[in-house]
Simulated scan of single mutants.
Amino acid sequence: MSTDHEGADRAGLAAITGTDTDALPGHLRRLDEAALLAMARALGREGLFRPGVAHRWDQIADRLGVAPRHRWIPRRWLAVLAEEGLLRRDAATGNVRDLRAVRRAEVAATAPAVHAACRGLGYPEAIADFFLTAADQLPGLLRDEVTAQSLLFRDDDPSAAEGAYRDNTINRYLNAAAGELLRRTPAPAARPARVLELGAGIGGTTTALLAALADRPVEYLFTDVSPYFLDAARRRFGDRLRYGHLDINAELAEPRIPPGAADVVVAANVLHNALHIGATLTRVRRLLAPGGLLLVIESCREHYQAMTSMQFLMSPPDGAPRPGTGDIRAGTDRIFLTAAEWRAVLAEAGYRPLFDLPDPDHPLTALGQRLLVARAPGARPQSRTFAQTQE
């Protein structure tokens, strides 16, 4: 085990001191169970699933009026409910039947368990309220009459989003570990370290990384595809950062980010949005200086609670492509890769995977989110810089 591995793990664990980590898997399972009931309740409406009647998934989606861009979501629900024993699925035809009947009162009765589980996982009350509201609004979410954004940023309050990406046990661990790795990265000679963050969003990881770099000169480029997040970041971080619009699914070799300009690239909870993860990783590698560091934070398992809430944010606009030919998820409704798949795609894209955290035998691993650390090939030069940008 490397000293960087040990140091990052220690820093992550120090950030969650006092947490009963042994209880974390149980809290997560209670959220899963509540979400399964919400899925079954939403799918069992409109007189579907009478005894002995089988349905194709598209018939169910048609009956429920599911918006075209969201149709992959109930299709994934059906697979999960079959795996969990809440309905039967014919292996030959894929048709489903005998969905467990769930009344609205049964879903509502999960509220105390959801609040307790969120507290145990370190989430603020706002995220529990978001989960429960999303579960109650599933018919409207499926029909695209209600958006997940409107529920997550209710009254323009970012508390729920911050709870999802920063203010919880696993993200405190991962962000602190990433910050420690950045602190340990050797400073380039005679210039500031150059850090590029992709899809920085609400800036949850940014905050931890800036704290780790407080005593070092740094040239930090905060990028996102959303003007909303860029404007919010300018208000929050001011002139300490540079800002730029960047779409990970577009060509990344822009004038402000010359090839080899970044010493470190950070991608926290964004690369799963890539239409082709391997191609995106290859483009990102070209932005890294030889020997540069890539820090990836990603979910490496499906969370049922997210499948009834956050995953509505991941549906593409009408007509936009899903991951296609050549992507590891092609032909499936999967969003997330396993840790082993991440290591494989990183290696295929020309990186040297170093390690990932938390360690496999730690209870934090059950939560599914991981920090994956990889290095670009070659020796580190001392040359290019980010172009000035302020969009």
Rank of each mutant, 00 (worst) to 15 (best):
L174R: 01
R334Q: 09
F312H: 01
I248S: 09
L357S: 07
L86Y: 08
G326D: 13
R172I: 03
D129S: 08
N95H: 14
L48R: 08
E197S: 07
R89M: 13
P192R: 02
T133G: 06
R50M: 08
L24R: 06
G179R: 14
S226V: 01
A38K: 09
L121S: 05
V225H: 14
H272T: 06
A376M: 07
R154W: 15
G201L: 04
D22A: 15
Q390H: 11
T389K: 00
A177V: 00
G26R: 10
F130R: 03
A134D: 09
E391Y: 04
L151V: 12
L24M: 12
R285K: 05
A111K: 01
D224I: 02
D247S: 13
L293K: 11
T338D: 04
R256E: 09
G244K: 03
L138P: 11
R235Y: 01
C300G: 06
G179N: 12
L152I: 11
L294R: 05
A34W: 04
P158Y: 08
L346G: 06
T332Y: 05
A306P: 01
L121D: 07
S315V: 10
S226Y: 00
T325K: 05
F237G: 15
V195A: 03
G319E: 09
E219Q: 08
R119S: 12
T325S: 04
H272L: 00
L31W: 06
D58K: 04
G291P: 03
L354F: 01
W77A: 04
A148I: 14
E298M: 02
L346N: 10
R143M: 06
R104N: 12
A268H: 08
A126P: 05
L354V: 08
L196W: 05
S2W: 03
L132A: 01
R56F: 06
A347Y: 06
L295F: 05
D215T: 12
Q305A: 13
R100D: 01
R236L: 05
Y228K: 14
G199I: 05
T338G: 13
R103C: 02
H276L: 15
P259C: 15
L142K: 12
R384I: 12
L281A: 10
A347E: 09
P227W: 09
L28A: 08
F49I: 05
L181H: 11
L37K: 11
N95K: 14
R50H: 11
G26C: 00
W72Y: 01
H362R: 08
T21Y: 13
I202M: 13
A212K: 12
G331D: 13
D22V: 00
T207G: 11
T205H: 15
V107T: 10
C300P: 03
I170C: 01
L293R: 13
A148K: 00
V264T: 14
P68W: 02
A347W: 02
P258F: 10
D239I: 00
L99F: 11
L281H: 03
H27A: 13
P25Q: 10
R184K: 02
G244V: 02
A177E: 07
G350I: 01
R103M: 00
G52Q: 07
R343Q: 15
P192C: 12
A189H: 10
R97N: 07
E197W: 04
A178N: 04
A366T: 09
P363E: 11
T389M: 09
A306E: 13
D144Q: 14
E219P: 03
T93Q: 00
E84T: 06
A379R: 07
T385C: 08
P217F: 13
L152G: 04
L210I: 15
A108D: 15
A262D: 02
I202A: 14
